[in-house]
Protein backbone atom coordinates (compact mmCIF):
# COMPACT_ATOMS: atom_id res chain seq x y z
CA UNK A 1 0.00 0.00 0.00
CA UNK A 2 1.16 3.53 -0.74
CA UNK A 3 2.30 5.64 2.20
CA UNK A 4 0.67 9.08 2.62
CA UNK A 5 3.99 10.68 1.64
CA UNK A 6 3.98 8.76 -1.65
CA UNK A 7 0.37 9.77 -2.25
CA UNK A 8 1.12 13.45 -1.70
CA UNK A 9 4.08 13.27 -4.09
CA UNK A 10 1.81 11.86 -6.74
CA UNK A 11 -0.86 14.46 -6.01
CA UNK A 12 1.71 17.22 -6.24
CA UNK A 13 2.93 16.02 -9.59
CA UNK A 14 -0.68 15.95 -10.81
CA UNK A 15 -1.36 19.43 -9.42
CA UNK A 16 1.72 20.84 -11.13
CA UNK A 17 0.68 19.16 -14.37
CA UNK A 18 -2.74 20.76 -14.17
CA UNK A 19 -1.24 24.20 -13.49
CA UNK A 20 1.14 23.81 -16.41
CA UNK A 21 -1.81 22.69 -18.52
CA UNK A 22 -3.49 26.00 -17.73
CA UNK A 23 -0.52 27.81 -19.24
CA UNK A 24 1.71 28.40 -16.23
CA UNK A 25 4.81 28.18 -18.39
CA UNK A 26 3.68 31.14 -20.48
CA UNK A 27 6.28 33.84 -20.89
CA UNK A 28 4.50 36.15 -18.45
CA UNK A 29 2.48 35.36 -15.36
CA UNK A 30 0.14 38.10 -14.19
CA UNK A 31 -1.26 38.11 -10.64
CA UNK A 32 -4.04 40.49 -9.66
CA UNK A 33 -4.76 41.08 -5.96
CA UNK A 34 -8.28 39.94 -5.17
CA UNK A 35 -8.75 40.13 -1.40
CA UNK A 36 -11.56 42.20 0.14
CA UNK A 37 -9.22 45.16 0.56
CA UNK A 38 -7.93 44.96 -3.02
CA UNK A 39 -11.43 44.62 -4.42
CA UNK A 40 -12.53 47.64 -2.41
CA UNK A 41 -9.65 49.56 -3.98
CA UNK A 42 -10.87 48.59 -7.45
CA UNK A 43 -9.09 45.37 -8.38
CA UNK A 44 -12.20 43.65 -9.74
CA UNK A 45 -12.36 46.20 -12.57
CA UNK A 46 -8.63 45.78 -13.16
CA UNK A 47 -9.05 42.00 -13.36
CA UNK A 48 -11.82 42.48 -15.93
CA UNK A 49 -9.48 44.48 -18.15
CA UNK A 50 -6.90 41.68 -18.10
CA UNK A 51 -9.53 39.00 -18.63
CA UNK A 52 -10.95 40.88 -21.59
CA UNK A 53 -7.49 41.21 -23.13
CA UNK A 54 -6.93 37.46 -22.79
CA UNK A 55 -10.36 36.74 -24.25
CA UNK A 56 -9.58 39.03 -27.15
CA UNK A 57 -6.49 37.08 -28.01
CA UNK A 58 -3.64 38.23 -25.76
CA UNK A 59 -1.43 35.16 -25.76
CA UNK A 60 1.43 33.78 -23.74
CA UNK A 61 0.07 35.20 -20.51
CA UNK A 62 -0.96 33.20 -17.44
CA UNK A 63 -3.55 35.23 -15.55
CA UNK A 64 -4.31 34.46 -11.92
CA UNK A 65 -5.81 36.07 -8.86
CA UNK A 66 -3.97 36.21 -5.55
CA UNK A 67 -4.64 37.17 -1.96
CA UNK A 68 -3.47 40.33 -0.32
CA UNK A 69 0.26 40.73 0.16
CA UNK A 70 -0.36 43.41 2.75
CA UNK A 71 0.66 46.63 1.07
CA UNK A 72 -2.57 48.44 1.88
CA UNK A 73 -2.03 51.97 0.67
CA UNK A 74 -0.70 50.91 -2.75
CA UNK A 75 -3.59 48.61 -3.66
CA UNK A 76 -4.71 47.34 -6.10
CA UNK A 77 -1.45 45.58 -6.85
CA UNK A 78 -0.54 43.55 -9.94
CA UNK A 79 2.56 41.41 -10.42
CA UNK A 80 4.11 40.48 -13.73
CA UNK A 81 6.49 37.58 -13.34
CA UNK A 82 8.81 36.39 -16.06
CA UNK A 83 11.30 33.56 -15.79
CA UNK A 84 14.83 34.88 -15.57
CA UNK A 85 13.75 38.43 -14.78
CA UNK A 86 13.12 40.34 -11.59
CA UNK A 87 9.42 40.07 -10.70
CA UNK A 88 7.69 43.38 -11.37
CA UNK A 89 5.23 44.69 -8.79
CA UNK A 90 2.84 47.44 -9.86
CA UNK A 91 0.93 49.50 -7.27
CA UNK A 92 -2.26 51.57 -7.41
CA UNK A 93 -3.32 50.00 -10.68
CA UNK A 94 -6.61 51.17 -12.17
CA UNK A 95 -8.34 50.21 -15.40
CA UNK A 96 -6.43 52.76 -17.40
CA UNK A 97 -3.07 51.67 -16.02
CA UNK A 98 -4.05 48.03 -16.59
CA UNK A 99 -4.63 48.75 -20.28
CA UNK A 100 -1.28 50.45 -20.47
CA UNK A 101 0.43 47.53 -18.68
CA UNK A 102 -1.11 45.22 -21.29
CA UNK A 103 0.09 47.35 -24.19
CA UNK A 104 3.51 48.38 -22.97
CA UNK A 105 4.61 45.56 -20.68
CA UNK A 106 2.74 42.40 -21.71
CA UNK A 107 2.86 43.12 -25.44
CA UNK A 108 5.83 45.46 -25.64
CA UNK A 109 8.07 44.01 -22.97
CA UNK A 110 8.67 47.37 -21.31
CA UNK A 111 8.68 47.69 -17.52
CA UNK A 112 6.79 50.85 -16.60
CA UNK A 113 9.24 51.97 -13.95
CA UNK A 114 7.25 54.82 -12.44
CA UNK A 115 4.48 52.52 -11.24
CA UNK A 116 6.77 49.87 -9.81
CA UNK A 117 6.72 49.35 -6.05
CA UNK A 118 10.20 49.38 -4.57
Amino acid sequence: MMKPLDIIRKKRAEAINRIVGKGYLSTKRVYVGMATCEIAAGSKEVMEVFKEAVNKGLTDVYLSQKGCAGRCNLEPTVEVIEEGKIPVKYGKVNEEKAREIIERHLKGGEVIEEWVIK
Binding site: Y31, Q65, K66, G67, G70
Partner: peptide, 9 residues
Protein backbone atom coordinates in the same frame (compact mmCIF):
# COMPACT_ATOMS: atom_id res chain seq x y z
CA UNK B 1 1.63 32.16 0.50
CA UNK B 2 -0.48 35.30 0.80
CA UNK B 3 -0.06 37.32 -2.35
CA UNK B 4 1.78 34.69 -4.36
CA UNK B 5 -0.77 31.95 -4.99
CA UNK B 6 -4.35 31.79 -6.15
CA UNK B 7 -6.20 31.18 -2.88
CA UNK B 8 -9.02 29.44 -4.70
CA UNK B 9 -6.76 26.88 -6.31
Amino acid sequence: NCGIIDPES
